[in-house]
Amino acid sequence: MNGRQRLGWLALALVLAGALVVGVTGDSGPPTSAERAEALSRQLRCPTCQGQSVRDSNAPAAEAIRAEIRRRVDQGEDDEEILAYIDGQYPDSLLLTPPRSGLGSLVWVLPVAGLVVAVAGLVMVFRRWRAAPTPEVSDDDRRRVAEALGGEQ
């Protein structure tokens, strides 16, 4: 690569890194209590609906939970406490994020494991391809070709 092109890519990397640093660190301070309450309400399932979160539902139960979250956020409880408290009020778990321990953790582990295996397999296949550039022709193949050619003559 020539010098000008190298300089171009270097400049690009610097500009990109600079913009990302500003974009990530320039975050607008800690979340307000309304933002916290909204984020928490996205983490919980509405107990009386089909597959809607507390934030997305207008069912009375969801409204009650939203009010409860808001009250506890204003009291200064931290996120974990609030989620645990509300989740404990209902017989079935309301947490939309599956647990990270026990049987539930499989839902996190399996895709990652699968991806690792797939990528490793791909790397191995490429290695093998590189090692064996031409396909091997067995005697059996030669015989078949000869037969096929012989049949036509």
Binding site: R42, Q43, R45, G51, S53, D92, S93, L94, L95, L96, T97, P98, P99, L103, G104, V107
Partner: peptide, 16 residues
Amino acid sequence: LVEAVNDDRISVGTPY
């Protein structure tokens, strides 16, 4: 699957 194995009811939702 979880329910079939141990009768627990968990949700897997948008955050996941």
